[in-house]
Simulated assay, not measured.
Amino acid sequence: MGRKKTTYELITNEFARKTTLKKRKAGLLKKLSELTTLCDVPACAIIFTSYDARPDVWPSQAEACRILEKFESLPEQQRGKNMMDQTIVLERNILQLNDRLEKQRKKNEVLEKELALVESMADENNCDWNNLEELEELSYQLQ
């Protein structure tokens, strides 16, 4: 059974908005708790809302301060090592796609040369075999 598709827009009903916030906050904190337990990762959450004067801090204010101080004490290079924004993610995706494209181009080039060789063996090719580089590449492929 699939989930209903959620549309992300402002909930106009104030009571429904508060209820949704409360449920989602509880779900987020539960996931964070599972993450810290299962993966042994120090984590904290500070959630500011317009409904409360004070922010919600998980697991506790003292523990959150300890985790944040530990993070701030790291050198700048190590602190930002695993941080990403949308630009970095897109740049990595573009690099991966360019690598895949280049590999596919090389594969296509090899297949085209093999096809040209097969066609020439069947006397169906009008290729100019006077190009020394092409002949050397075909010789290499045959070997």
Rank of each mutant, 00 (worst) to 15 (best):
E63I: 06
E63R: 08
E63Q: 13
A64E: 09
C65M: 15
R66E: 14
R66N: 10
R66Y: 03
I67K: 04
I67N: 03
L68A: 06
L68E: 11
L68M: 13
E69L: 04
E69N: 11
E69D: 14
F71M: 13
F71G: 09
F71I: 14
E72T: 08
E72A: 04
S73L: 12
S73R: 13
S73F: 08
S73W: 11
L74M: 04
L74V: 02
P75I: 00
P75E: 06
E76P: 10
E76L: 14
E76N: 07
Q77I: 09
Q77E: 13
Q77Y: 12
Q78Y: 12
G80M: 12
G80A: 13
K81L: 15
N82I: 11
M83H: 15
M84Y: 13
M84C: 10
M84P: 06
M84W: 09
D85L: 02
D85V: 00
D85R: 09
Q86T: 07
T87V: 13
I88Q: 10
I88K: 08
I88L: 11
I88G: 04
V89F: 10
L90P: 09
L90R: 02
E91T: 01
E91Q: 14
R92P: 03
R92Q: 14
R92A: 06
N93C: 06
N93V: 06
I94N: 05
L95N: 08
Q96K: 13
Q96S: 06
N98E: 14
N98S: 04
N98P: 07
R100L: 12
R100A: 08
R100N: 09
R100P: 02
R100Y: 09
E102V: 00
E102H: 01
E102F: 00
K103V: 02
K103E: 15
Q104G: 01
R105F: 07
K106G: 03
N108E: 10
E109V: 00
E109R: 01
V110Q: 02
L111A: 02
E112V: 01
E112G: 01
E112W: 00
E112L: 03
E112I: 00
K113L: 14
K113W: 15
K113M: 15
L115G: 05
A116I: 05
L117V: 00
V118N: 03
V118S: 06
V118Q: 09
V118H: 09
V118L: 11
E119Y: 03
E119N: 09
E119K: 02
S120Y: 11
S120K: 02
M121A: 10
M121S: 07
M121I: 06
A122T: 12
E124N: 05
E124V: 03
E124R: 08
N125S: 13
N126A: 03
N126T: 06
N126Y: 10
N126G: 04
C127W: 11
C127R: 13
D128A: 02
D128V: 01
N130E: 12
N130A: 04
N130F: 09
N130R: 14
N130I: 01
N130T: 10
N131Q: 07
N131W: 02
L132P: 14
L132V: 15
E133I: 09
E133A: 11
E134L: 03
L135V: 02
L135S: 04
E136I: 02
